[in-house]
């Protein structure tokens, strides 16, 4: 009966593999793979929970009467301990509730965003925020809007502005918010997929970075602009003096720690390195594991079906 546990195990594996994959794969490929894998694995694990719960439910006398099958046959053939079935039923309830809540939240948030985007009048393609904040974001909508604070625009030179706008434009034209929303919903159904969701949030940024690099023709420009804006956006005052001191101390820590760092240094490091290559073999291997998981869930469902048929014949 191990087939039933495979769909519950693979998402944990996917969670562990998500971040290294996000760093290795070309961002567009990575985004598609991780998003689709998250959906497929969430579906498989939910199906596996439902099957486990179904085994437990099949032992109920009332169901046996309705389904017209032999309870003793089920008892003899049922490979799942009742406790496991009950635990699965509880987990299934939690998963479907979390899923429904997340779907509603996402739909609301996106609806809100679309409504607000429709109400904004861009000035030369972007909406400029007044005030002294350092802000830049893409607001999904039909059409979406790029919102940048005037204060930030003042601090960037024209090429930096181009890089920033190209990045945000890529988010909007490639509908990155939908990938993220789908990954969030999948991770709500199975919390083991949370690292996959975070990886998708990272790969869409990388995707937009690469698009900005292609649009401006300068990877280092994009890297420098990201770095500049990130440092400007820090809430801490007195950052300049602190920077000089820490900059010297930091040379010891060096770049091997980039892999453990937050998204911004990883994005900058990726842009300063050579452009990413497509890695078809890795992609196919990952997809194959996901397909196998689906196959396992299907096979387990067939096993349950066979058992019930046997029990019906034994009536």
């Amino acid at each position: 009966m191990w087939l039933l546990f495979l769909p519950l195990l693979i998402p944990a594996l996917a969670g562990a593999a998500a971040r290294p994959l996000a760093a290795r794969l070309e961002p567009r490929q990575a985004t598609w793979l991780l998003t689709l894998a998250a959906v497929a694995l969430a579906a498989c694990s939910t199906a596996a929970l439902a099957l486990l719960a179904a085994y437990a439910a099949a032992r109920l006398p009332a169901l046996a009467a309705v389904g017209n099958y032999s309870q003793p046959v089920i008892r003899r053939g049922d490979p799942i301990p009742v406790a496991a079935g009950v635990a699965a039923a509880l987990a299934l309830t939690a998963a479907t509730t979390a899923f429904a809540v997340m779907v509603r939240n996402r739909a609301r948030a996106l609806g809100e965003s679309y409504r607000r985007a429709a109400g904004l009048q861009p000035d030369g393609g972007i909406v400029v925020l007044p005030g002294g904040s350092i802000e830049a974001y893409a607001l999904p909508g039909l059409p979406g809007r790029i919102v940048v604070s005037g204060c930030l625009l003042d601090r960037l030179d024209s090429r930096g502005r181009d890089a920033l706008v190209a990045h945000e434009q890529a988010h909007l034209s490639e509908r990155h918010h939908l990938f993220v929303a789908v990954a969030m919903v999948a991770a709500a159904a199975n919390p083991l997929l949370l690292p996959v969701r975070r990886a998708v949030e990272y790969t869409v940024e990388r995707w937009a970075d690469e698009r900005a690099a292609a649009a401006t023709g300068d990877r280092r420009l994009v890297a420098r602009t990201i770095g500049q804006v990130a440092l400007l956006a820090r809430p801490r005052p007195g950052r300049r003096t602190a920077g000089v001191v820490l900059g010297i101390a930091g040379t010891r820590a060096r770049r091997m720690s980039v892999a453990w760092a937050g998204p911004v240094p990883r994005r900058v490091a990726a842009l300063l390195a050579a452009p990413p290559r497509r890695r078809t073999v890795l992609l196919v291997a990952c997809a194959a594991i996901v397909v196998l998981t689906g196959g396992a869930a299907l096979e387990a469902a067939r096993d349950l079906h066979a058992l019930v048929e046997l029990a019906q014949a034994g009536r």
Binding site: Y137, L231, V268
Partner: peptide, 18 residues
């Protein structure tokens, strides 16, 4: 989709380094 997410002290150091 914000252009940059938050930066920890360590990230900031690393970033300057890069």
């Amino acid at each position: 989709s914000r252009f940059v997410s938050g930066l920890s002290e360590r990230d900031a150091r690393l970033l300057r380094d890069l």
